[in-house]
């Protein structure tokens, strides 16, 4: 084949992906940037929408809440997913059942999960009944500014941890057993094997899980919308909820688009930092 025919074949194979990226990613992103620069009733570009959101206390609060949420939930979810992956990667009785049980919430729509948790979080709900059994008084959960964000984290983790666990189990099963045998011969204990064999070998799947989990948690919406609406006192008002409220409740497309651009920029910066931290240096 000639060079040009090779290029044509490559272009043909790439076409669906390129078209999809342009239509589903780049075009909507361009529209968002365009709208973010158009103030209400304006016909020329300006930064008014950005000035508005950055002087709006509720948006600034949502940025802070989103960062707090991400800094807590991402390490927690990844640690839980890794712990479960290691646990279920061993030959435990009924491992398949336990893996399925942990993964199952992923198959339930987030909105349905949130409704189920709303019932559990009621003052007369399941969770308070369980707490009562172990002698703990009733908790307010989603109606308490101190507990609401944690309650949302619990729901989001219940949904997501099983999914990330599955990714990590696949990574664990790719680690050659010979590495563990060598480590055993060298006298390594369980902790040494985890630290010097498992973790380095899991770098690639862990990087994927870290990045994908971070992005997913920046985009959490349904549990917040259904359980708290962003309250109490804005304590669960993640940026996605702000964007939704501005765009679809208040009809303020400009500020919603500006907030979307800010969110994407925030996610990009954090993901770039994660890639830098998780890289093994080989590409440098």
């Amino acid at each position: 084949m000639t060079r040009w025919s090779n290029i044509r074949v490559a272009a043909l194979f790439l076409l669906p992906a390129v078209v999809s990226v342009v239509l589903l990613r780049l075009w909507p992103a361009a529209i968002a940037v365009h709208q973010s620069l158009l103030a209400p009733r304006a016909s020329s570009y300006s930064l008014e929408n950005y000035l508005y959101i950055f002087t709006d206390p509720s948006f600034l609060n949502s940025v802070w809440v989103t960062l707090l949420f991400s800094f807590i939930i991402n390490p927690l979810q990844i640690a839980a997913a890794l712990g479960l992956a290691i646990l279920f990667n061993n030959k435990l009785p009924m491992t398949g059942f336990w893996r399925t049980a942990v993964l199952l919430p992923v198959a339930i729509p987030q909105s349905v999960s949130a409704v189920i948790w709303a019932v559990a979080y009621r003052p007369d709900g399941l969770l308070n009944s369980l707490l009562q059994l172990v002698g703990i008084g009733p908790q307010r959960f989603v109606t308490s500014p101190e507990q609401a964000l944690g309650s949302i984290m619990l729901v989001v983790s219940w949904i997501g941890v099983g999914y990330w666990m599955t990714m990590l189990i696949a990574g664990l099963q790719d680690i050659p057993k010979s590495l563990y045998e060598s480590a055993t011969i060298d006298g390594a204990n369980g902790w040494h094997k985890f630290w010097y064999v498992t973790l380095p070998q899991l770098r690639r799947p862990l990087t994927f899980v870290l990045v994908a989990d971070t992005v997913a948690n920046f985009l959490v919406f349904a549990p917040v919308n259904i359980l708290t609406g962003g309250g109490p006192q804005g304590s669960t008002d993640l940026i996605m909820n702000q964007i939704y409220t501005n765009a679809f409740v208040n009809g303020d497309q400009g500020s919603a688009a500006a907030a979307t651009v800010v969110l994407v920029a925030l996610v990009l910066v954090i993901v770039l930092i994660q890639f830098r931290l998780m890289g093994d240096g080989s590409e440098r």
Binding site: G229, G230, G231, P232, Q233, T245
Partner: peptide, 15 residues
């Protein structure tokens, strides 16, 4: 209505 409903919710929850 949107802003007030949120305020009512906060008041109800002890703000």
């Amino acid at each position: 209505e949107t802003v007030l409903n949120r305020a009512f919710s906060d008041i109800r929850n002890g703000s």
